[in-house]
């Protein structure tokens, strides 16, 4: 049914027209800033390799190059592994905070929630530099340890994947907390009371009631952090000191250093494929949880 099928004075038809018109600005913005660039990216990934000038012929050579090179397989695995460790730890560390914020009766709850997500107010770049100051060989931690004569040589906390992990976990934890808070809608103090009345002590209330009911939130938090972690490149690059290779950093260097845009585009499409797979798996898992 199209809006024009109704005369203008028909309220239903007019409402429909208004709705469509209200959608236009947003759809236009999406089209220009998202769909067109994505289409261009997909097209670029199918162009002949080399510099930035694309030929008109279509080729799968870039994908072949990416998928047959063991280096890129390693990069892909590094990326997935980074995503898994960062999302697991960000959720583990954020869960008690989110649970506290969701359950507290304190009148400071709003302030505490704002504090928990306040790190989002500074950019990831700034916070990454902050971590470099803390974790570097001559950073705060190592110089304190050395001054106390607890260590002879600095502990390698940065310029490796450990540093990238630590910084990413902290940087992405506010997202995990926010997503978990949003997903804790089924938590209800009356359910905990009901379980206690039926003989469940606090531990059993947690395992049988709070944990299962908060799983959708945990899953959402993990998904969000995972997606942000596998697409990150500033933090792995700065904290990894050029020794941590993930898809984000590789796409960046193919695009800006090697100037092989078609290969960068192909890698980006592969990353997009990983995103889609993860989101489908997430939807399945969520449906399983909620029955």
């Amino acid at each position: 049914m199209s809006a024009t099928a109704y005369p203008a004075e028909c309220p239903a038809g007019r409402n429909r027209l208004i709705v469509l018109m209200l959608l236009v600005p947003g759809l236009l913005a999406l089209l220009c800033t998202f769909l067109l660039p994505m289409a261009w990216l997909a097209r670029a990934s199918l162009s002949a390799g080399g510099m930035t000038a694309f030929g008109s012929e279509l080729t799968l050579a870039n994908y072949r190059a990416a998928l047959t090179d063991p280096f890129y397989w390693q990069v892909g695995l590094n990326t997935l592994w980074l995503g898994v460790t960062v999302s697991v730890f960000a959720v583990l560390l954020g869960y008690p905070i989110a649970l506290f914020l969701a359950r507290t009766q304190s009148r400071w709850r709003g302030v505490l929630t704002a504090l928990a997500v306040a790190p989002l107010l500074t950019s990831a770049v700034v916070r990454t530099y902050g971590w470099m100051v803390l974790l570097g060989d001559r950073g705060v931690i190592n110089s304190t340890l050395a001054a106390l004569s607890l260590t002879d040589a600095p502990i390698r906390l940065s310029n490796n994947s450990l540093g990238a992990n630590i910084a990413l976990i902290e940087i992405l934890m506010p997202y995990a907390i926010l997503a978990m808070l949003a997903g804790f809608g089924r938590l209800n103090p009356a359910l905990e009371e009901a379980a206690a009345m039926l003989g469940a002590n606090r531990l059993r209330v947690f395992w049988r009631i709070i944990l299962p009911l908060s799983l959708p939130g945990v899953l959402t938090g993990a998904l969000l952090v995972f997606v942000l972690a596998i697409s990150s490149f500033v933090t792995p690059r700065l904290m990894g000191g050029g020794r941590v290779f993930v898809l984000g950093t590789e796409i960046y260097s193919e695009a800006t250093v090697t100037l092989n845009w078609p290969l960068a585009a192909a890698l980006a499409m592969i990353l997009l494929g990983i995103f889609s797979t993860v989101i489908v798996l997430y939807q399945r898992a969520l449906r399983g949880l909620e029955g």
Partner: peptide
């Protein structure tokens, strides 16, 4: 509470 052995029907039932 968990050792009192009392049954309670909550206002909004509080079914799991």
């Amino acid at each position: 509470v968990y050792r009192r052995n009392m049954g309670m029907v909550f206002q909004a039932y509080a079914l799991f």
